[in-house]
């Protein structure tokens, strides 16, 4: 099981590295999205309210994550999926995809944070909490989106379906992440945020475990 997961994650990394255009595309997506927001709100550096900064940041991360994860089951064609079906257990596949996608989402979130800090200013007062929150958010997003992209890949008109299926399911995670992130921006004491961080973690666990249990049924069809 662990060996399988390990091999599959290596496979995802190699595949991504070979088709660099997909990775570069999504990175450029984040940068352009941040820049469009910057121009649209017409904000000079540091001129933007903290709550707005927070909301814009998470919306951009949400959309980039949806775009990045959406391809996880589509990019490989049917024949190869059948091959994985024969050599690997579905549990190993979903675990490896979730881990890989969390890594990808985390990279996107960090890149977004960097670009945000450069052009919109960096009002974050508690870096540690903010990054921890990013890590948890990335985990939750990827668990939820990986599962939904598996579901959407079985149906036609993929892009719309991916969005409408994932948004309502992801909202609990997004809301908790935004609240913790607000606390980090205001530099509040960790004791204020600890129950929220735990709730976020618990929701992540619920989503991930549900995905883990349900994926074999999806994979078989």
């Amino acid at each position: 099981m662990f060996k399988q997961v390990h091999t599959l994650i290596l496979k995802e990394l190699t595949l991504e590295w070979r088709q660099k255009y997909a990775l570069n595309g999504i990175l450029l997506y984040v940068v352009s999205a941040v820049f469009i927001t910057y121009l649209s709100v017409g904000a000079k550096q540091g001129n933007i309210a903290v709550t707005t900064w927070n909301a814009l940041y998470w919306i951009i991360i949400l959309f980039s994550a949806v775009n990045a994860v959406a391809k996880s089951f589509v990019q490989e064609h049917q024949g190869r999926q059948l091959y994985y079906y024969m050599i690997a257990s579905p549990e190993a596949i979903i675990v490896s995809k979730i881990i890989y996608n969390s890594f990808l989402t985390l990279v996107l979130a960090l890149l977004g944070y960097l670009v945000f800090s450069i052009i919109l200013g960096n009002p974050v007062q508690d870096q540690g909490l903010f990054v921890l929150n990013l890590l948890l958010g990335a985990l939750g997003f990827s668990a939820c989106l990986t599962m939904v992209s598996g579901i959407a890949s079985k149906a036609s008109n993929n892009a719309t379906l991916m969005a409408i299926l994932s948004f309502p399911v992801i909202i609990p995670i997004l809301l908790m992440a935004i609240r913790v992130s607000k606390n980090a921006l205001d530099g509040l004491d960790w004791t204020v945020s600890v129950d929220k961080v735990l709730t976020l973690f618990a929701i992540n666990i619920i989503v991930a475990v549900t995905a883990y249990i349900l994926f074999p049924y999806l994979w078989r069809s």
């Binding site: 939820c144 599962m147 939904v148 579901i151 079985k154 149906a155 299926l165 309502p168 399911v169 992801i170 909202i171 609990p172 809301l175 908790m176 709730t199 618990a202 929701i203 619920i206 989503v207 549900t210 995905a211 349900l214 049924y217 999806l218 069809s221």
Partner: peptide
């Protein structure tokens, strides 16, 4: 039926924290 069932269970798992916890 199969994919609907999978999404139904998945959505319910997210629905419960949404209306009872948050």
């Amino acid at each position: 039926a199969r994919i609907g069932a999978v999404y139904n269970i998945f959505a319910f798992a997210a629905f419960i924290p949404l209306i009872f916890v948050l």
